[in-house]
Design a protein around this nucleic acid. Structure first.
Lengths: 116, 116
DNA sequence: TCTTGACTTAGAGTTAACTTTAACTGTTAG
DNA sequence: CTAACAGTTAAAGTTAACTCTAAGTCAAGA
């Protein structure tokens, strides 16, 4: 049961403390606890959650949608179906995006080969 | 030698007229001609250029960098090396990004499978 | 001739996602 | 005890990339 200060968590997840506080303010991290002096303490669970947020954000999901997903997640198995539907839809989006990236890669490579 | 109005070009490249004018203002489209009434006329060359801008932008290059690339392009073969160096660096970035996307895809798929 | 509609410009407004500031508080080392 | 330090908050500021508004121009059809 390790607890991280915001500086340590920041280091761990490669996001600034500003960003971590911002995510919390936006409701993406509803379960971060605070010590007696009011300072945030991040648990492994929190870091995992941040990791998944980075995954969703890195694949083009907006913070607004990530919050929606997180809100469903907070409601447990009652919202399992909705939540998974979101992920499945997002999965398609990622697959499509990878295809597009590959197409663009070819375009860039063609341009490199052009030699003009 | 077909010429397109901004509305037609907009349709063709799937960007709004606002965006096309904005790109031009930012110096990304230096060669768009105008008719006697001052209205933009897009040539096939312009549409091709816009297509490549979309490729670069879609793979995460900022408009600022795209302009840098375009400026080198305008200087012809004198700047060929620099220009191609940019593209080769960008190519690496795309390859890396595709890898990351694939990793994230796996994370999402794992979460879907979790059934909790 | 009049009006409609598609264009023009400069400049203001918007949005997402941070990022910084200012003022403050609690903990710790000397 | 006090100075330095790492955190806190609310709110303001920043940036990129659009997106829209207002006021005007021009050409074509009734």
């Amino acid at each position: 049961m390790s607890l991280y200060t915001i500086a340590q968590a920041s280091e761990e997840v490669e996001l600034t403390p500003y960003t971590l506080r911002y995510y919390e303010k936006e409701g993406l991290l509803p379960n971060v606890i605070k010590d007696s002096a009011g300072r945030r303490k991040y648990r492994d669970d929190d870091l995992q959650r941040i990791g998944f947020i980075k995954c969703l954000k890195g694949t083009g999901m907006s913070l607004k949608q990530i919050k929606e997903y997180g809100d469903l997640y907070e409601q447990g198995k009652a919202k399992f179906k909705e939540r998974n539907a979101m992920l499945e839809e997002h999965r398609e989006k990622i697959l499509q995006e990878i295809k597009t990236q590959k197409k663009y890669l070819k375009m860039v490579e063609a341009k490199i080969q052009m030699k003009i």
